[in-house]
Amino acid sequence: MSSKRPREETAAEGKPQKKQKSTGFSVGPANLPDGTYRRKTQKIKKDLIAKAKVKKAYAKVKAQEKEEEQNHPTYLESTGETVEPTPATLELHPDRQAMVDASLARESEFEQRRNASSRESRPRVRQPKQSRYQKEIELGVQRRAQIESHKQDAEARHKDRKAMAKAKRPTKDGNLKLGRQSTVLLSRIQRLANQGNL
């Protein structure tokens, strides 16, 4: 019988193992097709990388500042006196204060001009919005008024005819009803005078 092959583990024990190369990190499933979801995961990954770079740069700057503080003592080497750090105040630098004052002056001038020309001093009267169909509406109103006046005239004429027919009928005695006829004629004359036809 032939001897068995030695196991790979035993063969590898003698050699130092190679350090596996880092393949980075993945966000989301690796087998996404091109499309919105894949672009979204790629965007998230880029954002994470950018944030990590910013953190790394911030840590580097902070370490440099700490190192500079340690290297620069707060005392004077020639005289041996220590320098007291200046206390922080809430007062602005003179240049900055001048800029703030200038901007406040500009704002106050703007407010004064706006108040002078503001509409608050004179009340604003809002004009009614003109309808697109204003002419048609006016014509419609006139037409309705005309129809109504014609209707009233027709009713009045009908009423006069009916009253005149009744007044012209002779009484049982055969006499004419002149009093009734006169009232009908008088009402007709008043109506015609009001219309301006007389």
Rank of each mutant, 00 (worst) to 15 (best):
G24T: 01
K56V: 11
K151Y: 06
R96F: 13
S187L: 05
Q97I: 02
R39P: 01
L178E: 14
A167C: 01
L198H: 12
S149M: 07
D101S: 03
P123S: 10
D160A: 15
E120M: 12
K19S: 08
L178V: 13
I189R: 11
Y75E: 04
N194D: 14
A163H: 00
T171V: 00
L178P: 03
R191N: 02
S108H: 15
I137N: 04
T86G: 13
E91I: 14
I147F: 03
R188P: 03
G14A: 09
H150T: 08
N175G: 05
A156Q: 03
E81M: 00
Y58R: 14
S149H: 06
V100A: 02
P87I: 06
H150Q: 10
E155V: 05
D160V: 11
K4F: 13
P33K: 02
R106Q: 13
L76R: 14
S108K: 15
K151Q: 09
E8P: 11
R191C: 01
G35W: 01
N175Y: 07
E67S: 04
E69K: 08
E107S: 07
G179K: 08
S2E: 14
I49S: 03
P29Q: 08
Q64N: 07
I147K: 03
K45L: 02
S22F: 10
P85H: 04
K66H: 02
N115I: 08
D153T: 06
A50G: 04
E111D: 11
E136S: 00
V100F: 01
R169K: 13
A154P: 01
I44E: 02
S3D: 12
E120T: 12
Q130A: 15
G140E: 10
Q152E: 07
R169P: 01
R106S: 10
M164G: 03
S78K: 13
E138W: 05
G80V: 01
A154M: 09
F110A: 13
E155Q: 09
L176H: 08
V184C: 00
E148N: 04
Y58T: 15
